[in-house]
Simulated assay, not measured.
Amino acid sequence: MADTLKRPPFDPELEATLALLGDQLPPSITPEMIPLLRQGASPFDLSVDDVLAEAGIARRDVTIPGHDGDEIQVSVLSRQGRTGIGPGVFHTHGGGMILGDRFVGLQHFLRWITEFDAVVVTVEYRLAPEFPDPFPVRDCYAGLVWTAEHADELGIDPDRLIIAGASAGGGLAAGTAMLARDEGGPALAGQVLIYPMLDDRDQTISTAQIDGVGVWDRTSNITGWSALLGDRRGTADVSVYAAPARATDLSGLPPAFIDCGSAEVFRDEDVAYATALWQAGVQAELHVWPGGFHGFDMMAPHTAIAQAMVAARDSWVARVLGD
Rank of each mutant, 00 (worst) to 15 (best):
residue 91 H to V: 10
residue 220 S to A: 14
residue 293 F to P: 13
residue 203 Q to E: 15
residue 127 L to R: 12
residue 274 A to Y: 07
residue 73 Q to D: 11
residue 37 L to T: 04
residue 282 V to Q: 03
residue 247 A to N: 11
residue 286 L to N: 13
residue 11 D to K: 02
residue 296 F to T: 02
residue 20 L to K: 14
residue 106 L to F: 11
residue 103 F to M: 12
residue 27 P to F: 01
residue 299 M to S: 09
residue 290 P to V: 09
residue 259 D to S: 11
residue 129 P to C: 14
residue 162 I to R: 10
residue 194 I to T: 02
residue 171 G to Q: 02
residue 318 A to D: 11
residue 268 D to E: 13
residue 142 A to S: 09
residue 181 R to L: 07
residue 68 D to E: 15
residue 42 S to P: 08
residue 321 L to K: 06
residue 292 G to Y: 06
residue 88 G to S: 09
residue 220 S to V: 11
residue 108 H to D: 15
residue 314 D to L: 09
residue 254 P to W: 02
residue 231 D to G: 06
residue 153 E to C: 02
residue 310 V to Q: 11
residue 51 V to E: 13
residue 315 S to T: 06
residue 172 L to H: 05
residue 18 L to R: 00
residue 183 E to R: 12
residue 72 I to T: 13
residue 104 V to M: 11
residue 63 T to E: 15
residue 307 Q to M: 00
residue 276 A to T: 04
residue 234 G to Q: 08
residue 70 D to K: 13
residue 125 Y to E: 10
residue 304 A to M: 00
residue 200 D to L: 04
residue 202 D to P: 00
residue 181 R to P: 00
residue 212 G to C: 07
residue 225 W to P: 00
residue 67 H to E: 06
residue 33 M to A: 09
residue 286 L to G: 07
residue 162 I to S: 07
residue 73 Q to G: 14
residue 100 G to N: 02
residue 236 A to T: 12
residue 261 G to D: 12
residue 228 L to F: 06
residue 166 A to F: 00
residue 185 G to C: 07
residue 77 L to G: 10
residue 302 H to V: 05
residue 251 S to W: 02
residue 244 P to L: 07
residue 169 G to V: 07
residue 242 A to V: 05
residue 201 R to I: 06
residue 84 G to S: 09
residue 204 T to I: 09
residue 277 L to M: 07
residue 285 E to V: 15
residue 148 A to E: 13
residue 99 L to P: 04
residue 80 Q to Y: 02
residue 223 T to E: 02
residue 185 G to I: 10
residue 281 G to V: 09
residue 105 G to D: 08
residue 190 G to P: 02
residue 2 A to G: 15
residue 67 H to R: 10
residue 90 F to T: 14
residue 15 E to N: 15
residue 266 F to M: 13
residue 240 V to E: 09
residue 150 H to C: 05
residue 314 D to A: 11
residue 291 G to A: 12
residue 165 G to Q: 03
residue 274 A to S: 14
residue 99 L to R: 07
residue 222 I to E: 12
residue 162 I to L: 13
residue 143 G to L: 08
residue 80 Q to G: 05
residue 130 E to L: 14
residue 99 L to V: 01
residue 118 A to H: 05
residue 15 E to F: 03
residue 301 P to V: 00
residue 177 A to G: 03
residue 64 I to M: 01
residue 103 F to S: 13
residue 107 Q to H: 14
residue 140 C to A: 12
residue 69 G to C: 05
residue 137 V to N: 01
residue 153 E to G: 00
residue 26 P to T: 14
residue 28 S to A: 07
residue 49 D to W: 05
residue 38 R to Y: 03
residue 188 L to F: 00
residue 183 E to W: 03
residue 156 I to A: 09
residue 171 G to A: 01
residue 177 A to Q: 03
residue 6 K to P: 10
residue 204 T to Y: 12
residue 24 Q to E: 12
residue 233 R to D: 12
residue 322 G to M: 01
residue 242 A to M: 04
residue 19 A to Y: 02
residue 133 D to Y: 15
residue 285 E to R: 13
residue 169 G to A: 03
residue 190 G to R: 03
residue 104 V to P: 00
residue 119 V to P: 03
residue 309 M to R: 11
